[in-house]
Design a protein around this nucleic acid. Structure first.
Lengths: 343, 343
DNA sequence: GTGTGGAACTAAAGCGCTATAGTCAACAGC
DNA sequence: GCTGTTGACTATAGCGCTTTAGTTCCACAC
């Protein structure tokens, strides 16, 4: 056993103040049943004795675990979006730690493993709620979360009436912003290096690009699917740039792929931005340190994380809530990777 | 209250099998007190009823929380090492999830906040042990962890006799590898863009560079301190390259700063690797996607994380253990950012 | 003076599990 | 036949906290 410094319990406080443990509990939880005077004495004693609630004891009585879960399902070899999720995590923690809750983040290999983990967590009472990210078409996790009765919030899924509460931004609008900008520069061939097609955000972005391109009478805006890895981002870029009618602008679904694509273009002797404009859908330090720095969509990821946490806390407090929050559409930050196409 | 699917308890199992709850507990925990036959029936029933232990109930009885903590203290604006720690996390989780434990990772702003968090966690019985990273000279966390009686493992601190157990690699040796390599290429002016001087690893690397440079009669190997941000990495590079006797090779303590430094060099019209060789002390996808790809030290970060978890579990099982594990010295991966200096 | 109601408590049960102290029957040894 | 000794259990207490059901006491109304 660990030689841990012995912690005071409410019984100790009760003894010291000369009241019953129940009274101490009332006082510490701010509920009626004790006089203001006694409450003050109890609080003072608790402070002096450096008392802290024993999480497990509270949780056993049916209270909350004080933890929310966030699972990232991805192949360990196709990392790259950590920065985004690190920021999200940070934003969530800022909100949650004020309620002395925490985020349990876990990385797993795939969606089945993610679902297993949810079942585990639910049966062990480990978490009070979940954040679902990287929503898929017909996402199997939704039914599981329902079945388990775990409050959850989705990040990125525009809320549908009977769906889970969600925090989302308008991906289609964001893509429109990009196409507007590129079209104004006279780009006529715009390609899209996308993520895996199972993801809803990928599908929405591809659809938006397509309809925008069509509405403006530009050349077919093709979306090339990838697994989000730098390798596939590079390969997709190489394929696109090897064509006779190669695009004059490429939109990338992630900063990592955009940076990899930039590398491929330079290697092929294609000048950026003179011969090729590059736009990243994600911002991060990466878009700033490559040369030329990448034009990208940017948003306050920290605030997004905070919003997710807030919405999740609401969902935990009121499981019937279906409130969805739309966050601001990412705004375009123009850097040096975009310009009017040559010729 | 949450409309959660009602979980079976050991009492339910006991009722179903027709024994007492105590017997069920014995059976499920593999301890004597029940016949093999009864044990089998109990296990079967538990499986059928999909029973899982209630963490909080176990923890209340003094058992473990099933969580270990890992706190990253850094300014949110100087992110960048997420990839390294994401991999560590992944490696730890692979080991821990087999013991149905988890890692609680939390980001805080500075060391005092980190210490606060440790006190909180300890008093709430939230974690069974801690991983201390980014060790500092005279690290204040060590005394706190001792005082709290929390088992802990340090990552990166060569174990001293009465210190905490640690998992470490030989930074000095690694720096020697780099200097060996650069010296063999005839570099005579080697500079070092380091991390914050309070970090032990920074200090060790700088010292190793210094003594190596001296031993070989090269020009003074200066270490420029930074806060690990891309901005300061870039600034340090600019300063170094603006000198009359500018270095022909720069070693960076992080991949992010190395990439930023590369950008600065290109911007200044200094060719890499012809006029400047760049080596990064850290590997990640970043070193591969920039152009030219960066020569760097590489190691199996996932395995490192797994080793950390294993060592921590040992420390939890036996708090007296002071076992330190040296992991393999990072090996040099030569890419395109290093070459014989021109002239 | 009796009853009523509320404030300020106390007593006790219970959350799910573990651990310790019985209990009881079967068998061994003298 | 009696004591001892196992093995296989059961009964019970307890972990720290919350919560419900009392209990006391006092103020006030009639």
């Amino acid at each position: 056993m660990r030689a841990v410094g012995i912690r005071p319990t409410i019984a100790d406080i009760a003894k010291r103040v000369g009241v019953s443990p129940g009274a101490v509990s009332f006082a510490l939880n701010g509920r009626p049943g004790v006089s203001e005077q006694t409450r003050a004495r109890i609080l003072e004693a608790a402070r002096e004795m450096n008392w802290r609630p024993h999480r497990a004891a509270r949780a056993l009585g049916g209270a909350q675990a004080g933890v929310v879960g966030l699972v990232l399902a991805r192949d360990p070899r196709t990392l790259g979006s950590e920065q985004f999720y690190t920021q999200i995590l940070y934003g969530m923690q800022d909100v949650l730690s004020a309620r002395s809750s925490a985020v349990q983040m876990q990385l797993v290999r795939d969606t089945p493993a993610e679902i297993d983990l949810y079942r585990h967590w639910a049966s062990e009472h480990r978490v009070d709620g979940l954040v679902l990210v990287d929503l898929q078409l017909d996402d199997p996790r939704i039914a599981v979360v329902r079945e388990l009765g775990l409050p959850a919030v989705t990040l990125g899924l525009p809320g549908e009436p009977d769906q889970l509460p969600s925090v989302w931004a308008d991906d289609a609008e964001a893509m429109t912003t990009i196409v507007d900008y590129l079209a104004a520069l006279d780009h006529r061939r715009i390609a899209h290096v996308a993520g895996p097609p199972v993801y809803q955000h990928t599908a929405r972005r591809a659809a938006a690009l397509h309809s925008q391109v069509e509405a403006r009478g530009l050349h077919a805006g093709e979306s090339v699917p990838t697994d989000f890895s730098d390798a596939q981002g590079a390969a997709a870029t190489r394929a696109l740039l090897s064509r006779a009618d190669r695009p004059t602008a490429i939109v990338y679904d992630s900063d990592l792929m955009a940076a990899a694509g930039l590398g491929v273009a330079l290697e092929m002797g294609i000048e950026v931005p003179r011969q090729l404009s590059i736009v990243s859908f994600d911002d991060s330090v990466l878009t700033r340190i490559v040369h030329p720095a990448l034009t990208c969509l940017s948003r306050d990821t920290h605030a997004l994380g905070a919003q997710v946490a807030t919405t999740l806390l609401e969902a935990i407090a009121d499981p019937a809530s279906r409130r969805s929050v739309q966050t601001e559409t990412p705004r375009l930050v123009v850097r040096s990777s975009t310009a009017r196409p040559a010729g």
